[in-house]
Design a protein around this nucleic acid. Structure first.
Length: 137
DNA sequence: GCCAACGTTGGC
DNA sequence: GCCAACGTTGGC
């Protein structure tokens, strides 16, 4: 089981929007970055991830689950772009802000802290545990 | 709204 | 194949 982080601007597509999709989830389309795409190709059904709000909030707000493995992005002209589907699992009791992550020694190497521009990122087991703790889970 | 960081593009 | 120019992202 691997852990990931999905970033989205909440005024474009936020946590509430994902929750509204229900069990079926949402195609995580629109990613046009090779690193992010490759991470999505590595995902397995049942993998969990953090849902992070960039720009507004700058905090991880919920847990998501991969419900469909990588498939062609229906919004892409070029077949080289793949994406997964994710659904909302549950909100974090206490959202974890970027500030908190920066101040937490266990998260100093987290991709989010060091390369905030990558829109789909891997999260290590240790980082996942640290985030859960900060989130009150 | 600004700007630094990063990835991509295209001319050579 | 290098690298300058450009566009985009996202924190501040």
């Amino acid at each position: 089981m691997a852990y990931w982080l999905f970033k989205s601007e909440p005024d474009v597509f936020g946590w509430d929007d994902l929750v509204a999709r229900g069990e079926a989830g949402e195609e995580w389309d629109g990613v046009r970055n090779y690193q992010a795409r490759n991470f999505m190709r590595a995902m397995k059904t049942g993998d969990l991830g953090l849902f992070y709000h960039s720009n507004i909030g700058k905090e991880a707000v919920g847990i998501v689950e991969v419900v469909a493995e990588a498939h062609p992005d229906s919004t892409a002209d070029d077949p080289k772009w793949d994406c997964v589907d994710i659904r909302a699992v549950k909100p974090l009791p206490r959202p974890v802000t970027l500030d908190q992550a920066k101040q937490e020694p266990a998260l100093k190497d987290m991709v989010l802290v060091n390369n905030s521009r990558l829109s789909v990122q891997p999260v290590t087991d240790a980082e996942w545990a640290a985030i859960r703790k900060l989130a009150g889970l």
